[in-house]
Design a protein around this nucleic acid. Structure first.
Lengths: 350, 350
DNA sequence: CTGAAAGCGCTTACAG
DNA sequence: CTGAAAGCGCTTACAG
């Protein structure tokens, strides 16, 4: 019996087989599978047992053909996105979709505002996605959000800068992460800590900076203006900022850069100045991009929960929770996921 | 009329509509769409005209349901893969599949050899992919190739090290690229050129090295052993090699690293030694990974034709050419795609 | 709460 | 070379 079941997984089992085993009609099986309310608990249990016994997996193509749903989730990104961010999200999203019998349709949303709107509309109307995921900075594009709203397609915003509307979003707590990272540096004995701010047009920049400032203040540590530099998230801007921070007599013993590219630049400048990282200077970054574990020393950084963001987004979109938006409380819309501080080799006890 | 056609693209047109416009049966339309031989040229033309007039796009789900084909292409990769390589391939592959009405199913093939074989089998038997793309180093895994052969699934090997079998593959000419890159350095006036070799277990390492050697020899330039170091493709190994190459009186004026990570390491070592890149030392890499355009100076490197590799692979797999393997000539199986040398800021006239 | 019928848009197999 | 019929595996809409 058990061996028969095993071989059965190789043979395609249909809704009809499940119906027969459970002793009900295909219709009832379909209802159970789609979480329809009006099925008695007893029947539901019978069907579920039969389905799992046969290792039944619904045929998506048949579903798609018969139903009004497309079983497609769209993922829209806008270049240039932080390197690696899109692909990490995509890889996780692909897996999350697959295990639910959905497919992820990834599209680049580039060009003028008009072209972006067109790409968005096409994805909705041609591919007929059941839901859309908007990566930053697209998730802050109010016209696209409005278009989606009028098209009546549920969407999730990933790490939005501001609460433009009452749509659901996933994000991490940038303020808290920067606060904790700063505390880690302080705990290692650092008092003179430099900071490179991210570009002002990115909302997270302010939060990361504020987290740093508050952590310093809570420990009554000074934050002299010459220890603060403005960066643009690019490696090159990190180079410039690091030179200003380090090419002086009274230099910080640690530098917190608002992203990994700039942190890597700090390490490079330190080296060219004859400073060893981490013995002479500790450096921390933010994002945990591939670069953080490419260069040497590997950078201590904040790991964004990208896989969890993808999983949460797709879970919300496929469970249909997003459709019940009107009744949803704010707490159901906001998903603040846990970050992790990855301690590596760029920090040392001072 | 023209405006009607435009609005029609919004309404879903079916094979039935095309059949009616062309004055034939659905069956005939289906034959034309699937490139069936036995259709008269006249009928074919009529159908094609009607289809394009209606902007007809076949419904993949209906096709999948009715046919024995799945319209899925599998992409199998094995971590750790060169950073960015997989995601670049994936992004391109996603687009190539989409425009053909296919879907790309991406899966990570990790673990023991037994687990890898199981993942491969599952992808074939459960998802029923019509074809598989094997990224390196999976494409050199003879057991997986054999398994696929016995499962009778067509596959494409991407940048395989060796010709293990008579299956089709896509690749670029590593030897030629290294040859040309070396010539570029020579043309810029460099005579003393150092080289960092890639890991011996990667077939391309040998080809790149040989291309370098032959270019030097053809110009009668010396290649002293102290200018050659062994690397492992990692940044850290590049650091070690670069120190050996640069921390001496008689140093090369240019260094050719076998990949970008090591080239970035060379730049870092140069900086810490007080050498400016490119004025004191020219550096070139290979692969054109995101890192090459992240750090400063941006690295002059060889761009692998990843998008073209993805497009070619999917084109071969979806056109059904791969099935006619037996009759295929070798030239039809081998697809050596054009590379491009990206000249950036890490090389200067000597 | 449950089911019989019809149909989604294609292709397969069979005729002619 | 072309077509009428049946069916892929589900869901929708309608009964009861």
């Amino acid at each position: 019996m058990s061996s028969t079941t095993k071989t059965n997984t190789r043979v395609k089992t249909t809704i009809q087989n499940v119906a027969e085993l459970a002793g009900v009609s295909k219709m009832t099986v379909s209802r159970v599978l789609n979480n329809d309310d009006k099925v008695s608990d007893k029947t539901r249990a019978k069907v579920q047992k039969a389905a799992s016994q046969l290792n039944y997996r619904p045929n998506i193509s048949a579903r798609r053909l018969a139903s009004s749903k497309s079983y497609f989730i769209g993922l829209l990104y806008e270049p240039p996105c932080e390197k690696g961010y899109v692909s990490q999200f995509m890889l996780s999203g692909l897996k999350s979709c697959r295990k639910r019998g959905y497919h992820l349709v990834v599209d680049e949303c580039d060009g003028t505002q008009g072209e972006k709107l067109k790409i968005t509309r096409d994805l909705v109307e041609e591919t007929k996605v059941d839901g859309l995921i908007l990566l930053p900075p697209l998730c802050n594009n109010i016209e696209i959000l409005n278009e989606l709203k009028s098209l009546n397609v549920p969407y999730i915003r990933v790490s939005p800068d501001i609460e433009l509307d009452l749509s659901p979003f996933v994000c991490m707590d940038d303020y808290q992460a920067a606060y904790e990272m700063t505390n880690l540096l302080i705990a290692r004995g650092h008092r003179a800590i430099g900071f490179i701010i991210g570009p002002p047009e990115v909302g997270a920049s302010r939060l990361r900076y504020q987290g740093f400032l508050d952590a310093m203040r809570s420990k009554k540590l000074p934050v002299p203006p010459e220890y603060i530099e403005q960066g643009m998230f690019s490696y090159k801007s990190g180079l410039t900022a690091a030179k200003l921070l380090l090419d002086r007599a009274n230099k910080p013993s640690a530098i917190f850069a608002s992203n990994d590219d700039m942190a890597a630049a700090v390490i490079s400048v330190a080296n060219s100045l004859g400073l060893n990282v981490p013995t002479d200077l500790s450096v921390v970054g933010y994002d945990d991009t591939p670069l953080a574990t490419t260069i040497w020393p590997h950078i201590t950084t904040v790991q964004q929960p990208i896989a969890a963001m993808a999983e949460t987004s797709i879970s919300l979109l496929t469970s249909g929770q997003v459709n019940k938006l009107e009744q949803a409380s704010l707490s159901e819309l906001r998903h603040v996921l846990d970050f992790e501080i990855k301690e590596r080799d760029s920090v040392e006890v001072n």
